[in-house]
Amino acid sequence: MIEINNLRKRFGKVQVLEGVSLEISGGGIFAILGPNGSGKTTLIKSILGMVIPQSGSIKIDNNSIEGKWKYREEINYLPQIARFPENLTVHELIGMIKNLRSQPANDQDLIDLFGLAPFMDKKLGNLSGGTKQKVNLVLTFMFDSPLLILDEPTTGLDPVSLIHLKDLIRKEKEAGKTILITTHIMDFVETMADEIVFLLEGKIYFKGTVNELKKKSDQNDLEHAIATILTEENV
């Protein structure tokens, strides 16, 4: 479904992606892991066309995405930091995105699920971080697309919302969708992810299941497995 070939991206003097090649064949939850600054968000933003790589190619369903925009109709994206125009109300924002995408949306179910009804007429600038993240989730999950890209979806969520989020992600997976997630919460990865893509210093260090990663690093739990990889690399 997604085919990334030798992707390179440099910001000024910092080489963020140093020839990433990755193939994600549809269906399932893929966790993109890596330490801070390893290029997770850059990789995701390249798939979305928000970051323009120096070289390399990205294909979705065998079509190159370079300079295209129509393919984003098939992608739901949850940005890492929920940043919205501050003087819009929640209601206006949701209405605006629906209007711009003109695809059917089930926003009302999600608003009920996350208990956002009392905030609908509030301005986004006045919302707390967690509430903004819920709005972010509504915007992401309200459309029915085969590819979901979630950049740190758990940020700022309370335990109840976290459970709702996990249920939502599972439901999408059962519907046969491909879900890319970046996160630093290993517990979340262990319970949710089918496969792990581990980025280190701008390259793919590991791709496989959670158990394979544990075996490779000779550790029993994922958190330690990853810590082992990182300390070994640093020595």
Partner: peptide, 16 residues
């Protein structure tokens, strides 16, 4: 000031 708005739009199926 429209930076947030722009980022939101860039992830949508709209031409740059």
């Amino acid at each position: 000031s429209a930076r947030e708005f722009t980022e939101l739009l860039l992830a949508q199926p709209i031409k740059r």
